[in-house]
Design a protein around this nucleic acid. Sequence first.
DNA 1: GCCAGAATACCGGTAAACACGTACGTAAAA
DNA 2: TTTTACGTACGTGTTTACCGGTATTCTGGC
Lengths: 218, 218
Amino acid sequence: MTNAKVHIALADDHRMFLHALRALLEKEPGIDVVGVAGTGEELLAIAAHKPVDIACMDIGMPAMNGIETTRRLLALRPNIKVIGVSAFSDRQFVLDLLNAGARGYVTKAEAGEELLRAIHTVQLGKTYLCPDVAATVTNALLDNVPRDIATPRITARERQVLQLIAEGHTSVRIAERLHLAASTVEVHRRNIMRKLDLHSVAELTKYAIRNGITTISG
Amino acid sequence: MTNAKVHIALADDHRMFLHALRALLEKEPGIDVVGVAGTGEELLAIAAHKPVDIACMDIGMPAMNGIETTRRLLALRPNIKVIGVSAFSDRQFVLDLLNAGARGYVTKAEAGEELLRAIHTVQLGKTYLCPDVAATVTNALLDNVPRDIATPRITARERQVLQLIAEGHTSVRIAERLHLAASTVEVHRRNIMRKLDLHSVAELTKYAIRNGITTISG
DNA sequence: GCCAGAATACCGGTAAACACGTACGTAAAA
DNA sequence: TTTTACGTACGTGTTTACCGGTATTCTGGC
């Protein structure tokens, strides 16, 4: 049992990264990549039919993001250990993912060995955060203590509005598209900014990209 | 000569992608990865000291972007064939890169095999664009004919203003930061939008991210 | 020396964003 | 059941964005 290979599933919407990462992990003797997925749904399907010990997933996927995918995955298979892989290291983002049950987080800026280290660490039942993320999180805990549970989460409607804002539409257009009054859209916009502590369309746009609410290639 | 391995150098600011891609390419018998770089400068250094046939580089790198890197690389070693690898497929972006002398372009959304196909094609002296990029480019040529040479390039000052816009600053703040009149900043903003055919802060922000003018983790 | 382009600056106008308030019905949660 | 959160909608006001034109200065190229 101890010298059996660890079964790993990968998920990333960039197929080239997905395939490349598979090649990287397959070089490791103790690792067996049992499936790769381009979306959160595919990852759930893999976990439903194959033995998966560890899932490494991109967080910034469109449609279903990493946090939602993590929740559903753990509801389906509570023993799977989730490692978040992302280009970003938002404090709030990492905390959300850990709250969702993830056991590790590494950024794509780190070396490939960092992911292997994370895999080996969570395999032992521990939690692994790559250095800069760990620093961000501990700073957050030291600075703003009541950040643990007070996770501001936007509603589905707000998310919908945010997506259209990040696509460059005005409030009036968004109202037309959603069959709402323009004033309602502006309230949503205001609430989003208040909840997320963002203060411009530029920041809203970046947040939306980081969280997979919109794609950058729009 | 014909059955010698092709020497490839890689460049990407995401080290994990860089290392994973190296693992993917090293599986190929005809390919020898002679160096990997995290920045454009490193890639130039590698090309200066090692034999490189093909360079696969990420376009959205901070500091020196892919287009500038391509220019300098080809000035240094005109025989190197450059393949652009990017998460995005901007029409203008691709055209700029091809004008700079690149021989291929594949997006990260494509499968890993797509990059291998690009490598084998440019090795034969041909140009390779992945399907969706090829469609975008041909559409651009069919739609707006005088797009070939009229490559709108923003000035250094405009780039500076764009960066601050994408960081979420207002025109007034940008003016203060750059010691300009607010009206001047607004003219720059206007010219940027006109040149790039963008019509909102959201679009400006995404363009800035795609082109490495600002980072998404701001 | 002239011309084109860049960078600077100002004026005017419309539309939109942004901040603050109030209000109501419903649905979920305590 | 009371409370809380959400989605809906309106009003008022200030700031900013966005589109148009004009003009001066400076620099680089022909």
